[in-house]
Design a protein around this nucleic acid. Structure first.
Length: 349
DNA sequence: AATACGGGGTA
DNA sequence: TACCCAGTATT
C-alpha cells in the first residue's frame, strides 16, 4: 500500500464525512430496510436517474415484486408496466435475467461478493460496489457521477471524469481508505455529499461542506472548473407522424422491435417524416382502412439522450378495418393496465 | 474508446 | 438550450 499525498488527503475525509452523513443523510425509501434485494432494485433504478424520479417506482415495484423469486417469475409485460416511464428499459429486463440467475445459482440471494455481483447482467462496477458495500458492508468502492465530482474537486484533479481510467484511479485511491465497518455509510456519504452539497454546474454549497478545510479546489478557488468532462456529441433529429387510430372504442398499438430504442415496448402506429392529411388517408386506404374522420393533433417533441423526435399526429376514427389488421386493437382500460408505452408517445394517447 | 440507451429537472 | 443524473452493454 502506498501512502502518497493523495491517500493522505483521502484518509482525512473519512471521519468528517461519516459524522456529517450521520446527521445529514436523507430519509429515502430504500434506506428504511437496506436488505440486499431492496438495495439492488434501488441501485438499478437510480442508474442515470434522479432520486425523486425513483421514489414512487421503487415503492410500487417492491410492493408488486417483494422477492427475487417473484421478480424471476413475473411476466415481461407486467415487469415493463412497472418500469413504464422510468426509461432505459433494458435495466428491467436485465433485472429479471439476474433474478433468474440468482434463483438458479445463488439460492435466491444476491451474492455477497463483488465479482459475482459484477458478473450479473445490469450490474457494472458502480452497482456491484454499491450493493456489496451498502447491503453487505464489503469494503469496496462505489464510484458514480457524484463520487467522481466530489473526489476530483477534493484533489483539484483535472482528470477527465468521462474516461474509464479516471474512475479506476479514483477507485484505487478509495479502496485504500474505506473504513472496514462502515463501507456502506462511507460510500453513501460521498454520494450524498455530491447530491446535496458538492453540486455540479457552479451550484456547489461549499459554505456548508464538511470537507471545505481539506478540499484543494476550495482552497484554490477552482470549484467551477472541476470536474472536467469531454463534451458529448449533438443529437440527430427524426421526424414522425403519429396515428391515433380509433375503431369501435379501441386504439391501435403495435409492438416495437425487440432490439434498439425502446425495445419491445408498445407504440402508436406512425410514419416517417411529417405527412399531410391527404397522404395519411391515402396510406390507410391502401391498407384497406376506411377513414370516417381525421383531425390534426398538435406537434410535440421528445428528447432522448442521442435523438430528438419531432412529431405531428392525427386523431383518426375508422369506420372499417381489414380482416387482418397488423395492429393490436386495445380498449382504453386494457391499455392502461397491461401495455407499457414509452413517454415519447403519451402526447398522442 | 465511442456509442446506444429514457426521461425529467434545472440554470 | 445545455447539462446532469446513485451507469451498463455493446461495438
Amino acid at each position: 500500500m502506498q501512502t502518497n499525498s493523495t491517500t493522505m488527503i483521502l484518509k482525512e475525509i473519512v471521519t468528517p464525512l461519516l459524522r456529517w452523513y450521520h446527521s445529514h443523510a436523507r430519509i429515502l425509501p430504500w434506506r428504511e430496510n437496506p436488505n440486499p434485494y431492496f438495495v439492488w432494485i434501488s441501485e438499478i433504478m437510480l442508474q442515470q436517474t434522479r432520486v425523486e424520479a425513483v421514489k414512487p417506482y421503487f415503492d410500487r415495484f417492491i410492493s408488486a415484486l417483494p422477492t427475487v423469486e417473484s421478480l424471476a417469475e413475473v411476466p415481461e409485460n407486467e415487469l415493463l408496466k412497472l418500469w413504464e416511464g422510468l426509461g432505459y428499459y433494458n435495466r428491467a429486463r436485465n433485472l429479471q435475467k439476474s433474478a433468474q440467475e440468482i434463483v438458479i445459482n445463488h439460492d435466491g440471494k444476491l451474492p455477497a461478493n463483488y465479482k459475482k455481483l459484477l458478473s450479473l447482467p445490469g450490474i457494472g462496477p458502480y452497482t456491484a460496489g454499491a450493493i456489496a458495500s451498502i447491503a453487505y458492508q464489503i469494503p469496496v468502492p462505489a464510484v458514480d457521477g457524484n463520487v467522481l465530482r466530489v473526489i476530483t474537486r477534493l484533489l483539484a484533479s483535472r482528470d477527465d471524469i468521462m474516461k474509464e481510467k479516471t474512475r479506476k484511479k479514483i477507485e484505487s485511491y478509495l479502496a485504500q481508505v474505506i473504513p472496514a465497518n462502515e463501507a456502506g455509510n462511507f460510500n453513501q456519504s460521498l454520494m450524498e455529499l455530491g447530491a446535496t452539497v458538492c453540486l455540479p454546474k457552479g451550484a456547489a454549497k461549499c459554505y456548508s461542506c464538511p470537507l471545505k478545510q481539506i478540499c484543494l479546489s476550495f482552497a484554490e478557488d477552482c470549484i467551477s472548473e472541476i470536474p472536467v468532462k469531454t463534451p458529448k456529441k449533438t443529437k440527430r433529429i427524426e421526424s414522425y407522424t403519429m396515428l391515433r387510430l380509433q375503431y369501435e372504442n379501441k386504439i391501435a398499438l403495435q409492438k416495437r422491435p425487440s432490439t434498439g430504442l425502446l425495445a419491445s415496448l408498445w407504440e402508436l402506429p406512425h410514419l416517417d417524416n411529417h405527412m399531410g392529411q391527404a397522404q395519411i388517408i391515402h396510406y390507410l386506404q391502401e391498407k384497406n382502412y376506411k377513414v370516417k374522420n381525421i383531425t390534426p393533433l398538435p406537434p410535440s417533441k421528445h428528447i432522448f439522450t442521442h435523438i430528438e423526435w419531432h412529431m405531428i399526429g392525427y386523431y383518426i376514427e375508422l369506420e372499417q378495418i381489414p380482416a387482418k389488421s397488423n395492429y393490436h386493437w386495445i380498449s382504453p382500460q386494457n391499455l392502461i393496465d397491461d401495455y407499457a408505452i414509452p413517454t415519447a408517445f403519451k402526447g398522442y394517447l
